[in-house]
Design a protein around this nucleic acid. Structure first.
Lengths: 149, 149
DNA sequence: TTAGCTGCAAATTATTTGCATTCCG
DNA sequence: CGGAATGCAAATAATTTGCAGCTAA
């Protein structure tokens, strides 16, 4: 996956953010690791080889900013650290997470059945939904085989 | 809402946990604050008047234990602290959270449309789901009125 | 009696912030 | 040039842990 630099510059300019090499490198890390849920520390480690001079504080500041610009999605899996993933380009960002209670593995599950629920909520409340997040907890195939859950 | 002490003693005995006054007080706090999402610090503060000698560490340890026993549900709203709420007695624990991006208010939304999605996942993957968590982000009625989102 | 609890203080861990310096636009 | 952004180190904030003294079963 690669980053649309034109779109990036446009969105940055809008908020008068500067396009710095650090920010580009950080986004690249996500582009190079699709389907992964990276913590600030993860990103920092992954940058060690390519750009060893980027500070951890910069990573934190950049992640926060990129989330604000909707380039990244923040997810909390309950392990104490925030994790991020590249937001899908368009609207169909709908994928959910299956979290195994036994081994902790997180797998993706893409689907849009949730749209039904979303529109139902919109219809029955005065809440305007812009985004959603779903997590399923349970036992993955591997673990079920091993322990028979 | 009140706690079923018989059930509690039964579940505690199973894991040989002791029924201490501290643990009871902590559960009472949740019983006295339904529909709220309390952090460890919240619980600790609420106990100040009734049981000023309960330490914060005990609160943390108890919350973790009660989550393990499924007496409590843990939720992360992304504000840096874990929050807990009383798990509904039976299976119909299904209520979701509507999180306002503008004012931060979290409201409950009870529904079970999600069962459909859950059974679909079960059917199409080898993942056995035991629980789920849904969060909707958007703008609440109040804020929409004010800012016209 | 005794394994499990508790309170307290000290230790960790994730994240934030102050500030002098550097750099994009 | 000038306001933003960066790196580093120090500061916070949430949660965890070690330990000696308690207490439920």
């Amino acid at each position: 996956m690669s980053i649309d630099m034109v779109e990036l510059r446009r969105r940055f300019r809008e908020k008068q953010y500067k396009v710095t090499p650090q920010r580009q490198k950080i986004l690249e890390v996500f582009a190079d690791h699709p389907e992964e849920h990276l913590s600030a520390e993860d990103v920092y480690s992954l940058l060690r080889s390519t750009a060893p001079d980027i500070g951890l504080a910069t990573v934190y500041r950049t992640l926060e900013m990129l989330e604000g610009l909707a380039f990244l999605h923040r997810i909390e899996f309950g392990d104490g650290k925030s994790r991020y993933e590249l937001a899908a380009g368009d609207s169909s960002h709908s994928h959910h997470h299956l979290i195994c209670l036994s081994c902790g593995t997180v797998t993706e599950f893409g689907d849009d059945l949730l749209e039904t629920l979303e529109s139902f909520v919109s219809r029955t409340t005065d809440f305007q939904i812009t985004d959603h997040q779903v997590k399923f907890y349970g036992y993955c195939g591997e673990c079920r085989k091993k322990s028979g859950h």
